[in-house]
Amino acid sequence: MNLIFRLLAVILAAWWRPRMRMNETSELRFRVWPLDLDLNLHLTNSRYLSLMDLGRTDLILRSGAWKEMRRQRLGVVLAGSALRFRRPLAPFARFTLATKLIGCDERWLYVMQVVSGPDGLACTAVMRAAFVKKGKLVPPEPVLQAVSPGFGKEALPAWVAEWAEVEAAFAE
């Protein structure tokens, strides 16, 4: 139940927080609550993914992408993720979630998300997402240009391209 309150807080805070471009970093601060814990008494793996949804929501709202998505009647879907857990987050620990769009290709948006706690890096993730309309993928670059004019289609880091190849192997 506490996720709905966190979602509402992110949505409401987005109205007052500074606007940002799609290629800037969104930062959200959270605390590990008892309902976030697993049997090992640290932040459960599945909660990281739920919280990362909130980071992407903040980026979409504050960049103005949500307005453009509504205008074009687009949705956004997560198509893949790769996470690496480094350190546990203990009960009541404060932590920061940083979310940044690292680039796109003809079909996909690639988003890097980093969770840092009191002892340093806790988790890193890369997500692959897409804009969709009526069940079909929409090229991301025109949408990104409408939201952040001048958004460049920089070359993706080599490791992202390699990860995308591994993801494609799952489709076979």
Rank of each mutant, 00 (worst) to 15 (best):
M1V: 04
N2W: 08
L3M: 15
L3K: 02
I4F: 15
L8Y: 09
V10S: 06
V10E: 14
V10C: 12
I11V: 15
L12K: 08
A13C: 09
A14T: 02
A14H: 03
W16R: 14
W16Y: 06
M22W: 05
N23Q: 09
T25V: 14
T25R: 12
S26V: 13
E27S: 15
L28K: 11
L28H: 08
R31W: 08
V32Y: 08
P34H: 07
P34A: 09
D36H: 04
N40E: 12
H42I: 02
N45F: 07
Y48G: 06
Y48P: 08
L49V: 10
L49R: 01
L49C: 04
L51F: 06
M52I: 10
M52Q: 10
L54Y: 05
R56H: 07
L59N: 08
I60Y: 09
I60Q: 13
I60D: 01
R62F: 00
S63R: 10
S63Q: 03
G64K: 08
A65W: 00
K67E: 13
E68L: 10
R70L: 14
R71W: 15
R73D: 14
L74R: 12
L74D: 02
G75H: 12
V76H: 01
L78F: 03
S81W: 00
S81N: 15
A82F: 04
L83G: 01
L83T: 11
F85Q: 07
L89M: 07
P91K: 10
A93S: 15
R94A: 14
R94T: 07
L97V: 05
A98F: 04
A98L: 07
L101F: 03
I102N: 10
G103N: 01
E106L: 00
E106K: 13
W108K: 04
W108D: 02
L109Y: 04
V111Y: 03
M112Y: 12
M112W: 12
P118K: 08
D119I: 07
G120T: 11
G120M: 05
A122G: 05
A122S: 15
T124F: 00
A125F: 11
A125S: 12
V126L: 06
V126C: 04
V126Q: 05
M127W: 13
R128V: 03
V132E: 09
K133N: 10
K136E: 11
K136S: 14
V138C: 07
P142Y: 06
A146S: 14
G150A: 13
G152T: 12
K153A: 12
L156R: 01
P157Y: 06
W159Y: 02
W159C: 05
W159K: 11
A161L: 13
E162K: 03
E162Q: 13
A164P: 03
A169W: 00
A169G: 07
F170S: 01
A171P: 03
A171G: 07
E172F: 00
